[in-house]
């Protein structure tokens, strides 16, 4: 008879692993990736390829040769960061800018803090914000997709950029909207210029629903961001529609859906408890709207998430689950 294993309970384990959870996130991002490639063509494929390859290679090289420990490439978290970074950039970003973004995301934001599970800020967002500050030209010349394989892309401002520009020139919101010709129905399916990942709101929402159904994430963070953005913009727009944009516009633009579904829900950089998540989401929604309405940057999702990331340890301490039989 073979030897019997003796170890403490439990003797069975759930099928979840870090790798399987990350694989689910990758699967959830596939609709958005397909849409972005359909709309922007091979240039977007290049951005995605460079981003994912750089993130994975950097993770491997840094863990193995600089930190001298087992590589964590297998957990697929670097692949997720790579895809998210690419979807947060315009498809026109040069490959070397993408690479710098990957160095900041993986090398600085993730591995400097000790690798997966240790970082305070979402790596892909740190990469994106670094590029936004360092290479504003590449990052703000968003391009309108023209046709399925957008060869003849026209440079233009994002809807939020156009709003800020218009307000500075003294136009009212109604005039800016009329000039831009924004059609919310179209924005849901195929958005105008912006980050590659924002092309199709429905594709992002499909991925979000998949993650919720698979119980990879809980919906509360995302829903509280949406609700807060809708509520705050409803109040401001209701008071002064000539100065402030309406709720639907704010929900559909500026990478809000991408950020709320995939960046704010990152395990490592979000609170653990349900109520902590709600507070976190309300904070992101509120900060986003304040930056959009009153800040110098036209869009605020990235900054709002990074700012709220910083508060996660405090939120985790303040919002604990109720313990059984204790007050």
């Amino acid at each position: 008879m073979s030897k019997l294993i003796v170890s403490p309970n439990p003797h069975i384990h759930s099928k979840d692993s870090t790798q399987s959870l990350m694989r689910d996130v990758v699967i959830a991002l596939i609709p958005a990736v397909i849409c972005s490639v359909l709309f922007y063509g091979w240039k977007e494929l290049l951005v995605l390829g460079v981003s994912v390859a750089s993130c994975v290679l950097l993770e491997y090289a840094i863990t193995r040769y600089m930190l001298k420990r087992a590589s964590t490439v297998g957990d697929l978290s670097a692949v997720v960061t790579g895809i998210l970074l690419a979807l947060n950039l315009p498809y026109t970003t040069p490959w070397w800018v993408v690479f710098i973004g990957a160095v900041v995301a993986i090398g600085v934001a993730k591995l400097t803090f000790g690798g997966i599970g240790q970082n305070i800020w979402n790596p892909a967002l740190v990469g994106r914000v670094f590029l936004l500050v360092s290479f504003p030209t590449y990052m703000t010349t968003w391009a309108k997709p023209q046709g399925l394989f957008g060869i003849d892309a026209i440079s233009g401002a994002t809807p939020l950029g156009a709003v800020q520009e218009g307000l500075l020139q003294g136009s009212s919101i109604q005039e800016i909207m009329a000039e831009g010709g924004y059609d919310y129905g179209q924005m849901l399916l195929a958005n105008l210029g912006g980050s590659a990942g924002e092309v199709c709101a429905l594709a992002l929402l499909a991925g979000f629903i998949y993650l919720c159904v698979r119980r990879v994430i809980k919906p509360w963070i995302t829903l509280s961001i949406f609700a807060t953005v809708a509520l705050v913009s409803l109040i401001f727009w209701g008071v002064n529609p000539a100065r402030f944009t309406d709720p639907a516009f704010n929900l559909l633009t500026g990478g809000l859906i991408l950020g709320a579904c995939f960046m704010a829900t990152d395990y490592v950089t979000s609170p653990m408890s349900v109520w902590g998540g709600v507070i976190f989401g309300v904070g992101i929604g509120f900060l986003t709207m304040m930056i959009r309405y009153f800040g110098s940057y036209p869009e605020g999702v990235s900054f709002a998430i990074l700012i709220m990331n910083s508060f996660v340890p405090l939120i985790n301490m303040a919002f604990k689950q109720k313990k059984y039989g204790r007050k």
Partner: peptide, 17 residues
């Protein structure tokens, strides 16, 4: 492997720990 702070253990704990 490393803790990814997913919170699944806290969600699962029937004593709320």
């Amino acid at each position: 492997s490393a803790c990814i702070r997913c919170g699944k253990c806290a969600d699962a704990c029937p004593m709320g720990l």
